[in-house]
């Protein structure tokens, strides 16, 4: 079963009197364990597609299936449950909860999932150690660098055990060193845990990590090609 199937997905937006095409009949099939990059210039539809796949936005037309579940047939509560249990998000701006510590940020989604306090803590510490933040568990986001915050966000996205991680410009606010570390981490999690990664980026260094590169332009998929991954150099 495919991790994600998009069939002729369309999304338009109103901007004043103008109708903007966000997605124009996008069809895409992503297999479990893939490491895929969506690339393209700003306004090409990368984020719109990620939002639609992540059940954050509803397309005007077409059908999206995630883990065998057709999003169009799910209620608002069921979509929230799908996001909670099967999808992890990494945002460009980290989006950590500022009043919670690094550990609590990672634990928070697991608590909503209903895990016990002991289990949450163990998983959170394990994930923070895995992303290289052992010893920083009690720090709040404001006490961490941008790269460290993004790693907490990755730990949060993966700790809940999702099948699919959607990352929207995850390196946009990071320096090249932090970007390389983050992408190494993604690759490691993909390899070790079999998590499917879909990353929207226009950073060529990030694209180099992908084994499949989907290029978008004006809301359409203009190229979909397999490639040999190339890691960024750590400066």
């Amino acid at each position: 079963m495919s991790a994600v199937v998009c069939e002729a997905v369309c999304r338009t937006f109103h901007q004043g009197d103008a109708l903007i095409t966000g997605l124009d009949h996008v069809s895409l099939e992503i297999q479990p364990g893939e490491f895929l990059c969506l690339s393209g210039p700003s306004g090409s539809g990368k984020t719109t597609l990620l939002n639609a796949i992540g059940a954050l936005d509803t397309p005007d037309g077409g059908e999206i299936t995630v883990g065998g579940q057709r999003l169009g047939s799910l209620s608002r509560a069921e979509l929230a449950e799908l996001r909670l249990r099967r999808i992890g998000f990494v945002f460009q701006a980290y989006n950590l909860i500022p009043v919670l510590t690094a550990r609590e940020n990672v634990e928070f989604v697991m608590q909503v999932q209903g895990l016990s306090a002991a289990r949450r803590r163990a998983v959170a510490d394990e994930m923070l150690a895995a992303v290289g933040l052992a010893g920083l568990e009690e720090r709040r986001p404001a006490q961490l660098s941008g790269g460290q915050q993004q790693r907490v966000a990755v730990a949060r996205a993966v700790a809940s055990g999702p099948d699919l991680v959607l990352a929207d410009e995850p390196t946009a606010n990071l320096d090249s060193h932090s970007s390389a570390h983050l992408m190494d981490l993604f690759e490691q999690l993909n390899g070790e845990r079999g998590v499917t990664f879909v990353i929207a980026t226009h950073d060529p260094g990030v694209m180099g990590y992908a084994r499949r590169l989907v290029r978008m332009l004006d809301g359409r998929v203009v190229a979909d090609e397999a490639q040999t991954p190339q890691r960024m150099a750590h400066e």
Partner: peptide
């Protein structure tokens, strides 16, 4: 609002 949007994205329902 932004923070609540993130929480919704993470899978929290509006009831929570």
């Amino acid at each position: 609002t932004h923070e609540f949007g993130v929480m919704l994205a993470l899978g929290l329902g509006p009831g929570r």
